[in-house]
Design a protein around this nucleic acid. Sequence first.
RNA 1: GCUGCCAUCGUCUAGCGGUUUAGGACACCGCCCUCUCAAGGCGGAGAUCACGGGUUCAAAUCCCGUUGGCAGCGCCA
Length: 493
Amino acid sequence: MSNVRVRFAPSPTGDLHIGGVRTALFNWLFAKNKSGRFLLRIEDTDEVRSTEESVQVILDAMQWLGLNWDEGPGKEDPKYLPYYQMKRKEHGIYQKYADKLVAQGSAYCCYCTQKDVDEMRKQAQANKLPPKYSGKCRHLTVEQRKQEEACGKKAVVRFKMPDTGFIILNDLIRGKIEFDNSLLDDFVIVKANGVPTYNFACVIDDYLMEITHVLRGDDHISNTPRQMQIYSALGWEVPKFAHTAMILGHDGTRLSKRHGHTSVLEYRKEGYLQEALINYLALLGWSTENSQQIFKIDELVNKFSVERCGVSPSIFDPEKLLWLNSEKIRSKTSEQIYELFIDWLKYTNNENLIKGWDVELLKKVIALEHDKINLLKDIYDLVDFFFKREVDYKEEAVEKVLLSDKANGTARVVLTESIVRLRNQQDFSAQALEQYSRNLAVEKNIKTGQVFHPIRVAISGRTQGPSLFHMMELMGKEEVVKRIDMAINKFFR
RNA sequence: GCUGCCAUCGUCUAGCGGUUUAGGACACCGCCCUCUCAAGGCGGAGAUCACGGGUUCAAAUCCCGUUGGCAGCGCCA
């Protein structure tokens, strides 16, 4: 095992997003590829928006995706726990370092109100300067501080950014990026309520959890110089950073609700396979030399490298995801698809849909419809006519194949003849049935299609479906005859 | 406004100075297969490599600039 330690650190303020999954996936792949450890840390310092339910949803989603963590909630390592930031806060972890920074003069208490700060930012922006906090409270004397406290004001702790110099980030994906310190303001590291802010908690935890590599979206690039300054002030070694390009919606803007499904859960409900989502997301912002498209998870692990991550953002393409899903489904056995279908029904609370269905028959029908399944949710509509007592005759199909001028006469003859002859048909195998049908066509001097199609519609109610003769074989003589009879009664009486 | 990132077919991408009349994949179109629908096979269309300058014998590939897009600029993460 290497010493590589990476983490996925979601904030539990909603469902797990496509973008979040991609970040988690890259971290997971990186860890597996390097025989390192993948940790899950819950960044719940947003007391207003963080929820218990959201934590559970994220945990469930990660599990479903197979992005299992080596350390994190439920898999605590005594050396690094706890894995929830609010719990870590209760342990005084952040306060300790905030105090240290204040004591050594790298941070200070600030009593400015939200309003004051807004005003300063507006002012700066009006002067075409970057919106910065002015540093007003930087040099408060002990006296002045006491005075502010006496007024009942609660202080935030601000980090003192150097006024000069540059900080250089050597990004594993993008190379060298330079930041001008003077453009950055003294950002808050501890809020008035004593809770650490993201940039601070993140650094403290990454250090204490001995994170070696930080892989995250490039929307975090601008946070990096701030975080690096904290590492530096504390005399800590900076981890390696790798900023991946973001995933955008069809209009090229940051993926959000208005782009349709953004939550993993929605994809699960739609009947996407976990491996299809993983495979697709791996393709967004990462590629191999030969542009391979379809990967097994192990292959992904073996071939992944940050060096081959792209720098330009990519647009999420639902169509390609769908294609990958159908590919993954096609690569499974019908037994496996059956299992997945059952799991999906359970997950969506639809088990009653197939109540009373013959499981063995279902598996065989799935095999027959195999390459038409794009999503697990497609299966029901593809197979239900096998199991229903009453055939649901589609109006269009009946009109076109049974009743139209073109079909008129022959459809009726074919069905009435078939009902008698099929009843006496000894061999009900697909092969024999095909022979029977072809013979009938020759005998009546009509095209094979004029035999096949009416029978298809009579027994299934639709014009589309699996191989007719295999369908008949599976249904069995009794059912086929019954259905043809039903059709005759319905349309030719 | 400030700062940063990015720029190859509609989309995901290969490409790391000559092997490129720019390769693959999705989607699209056509043909074949065929009892329908799919799947599969074959083929097609689709990219003046954002633009403009350099560097070089040679540039999608290196450098500079321009434009455009996106992101960040919170006591959110």
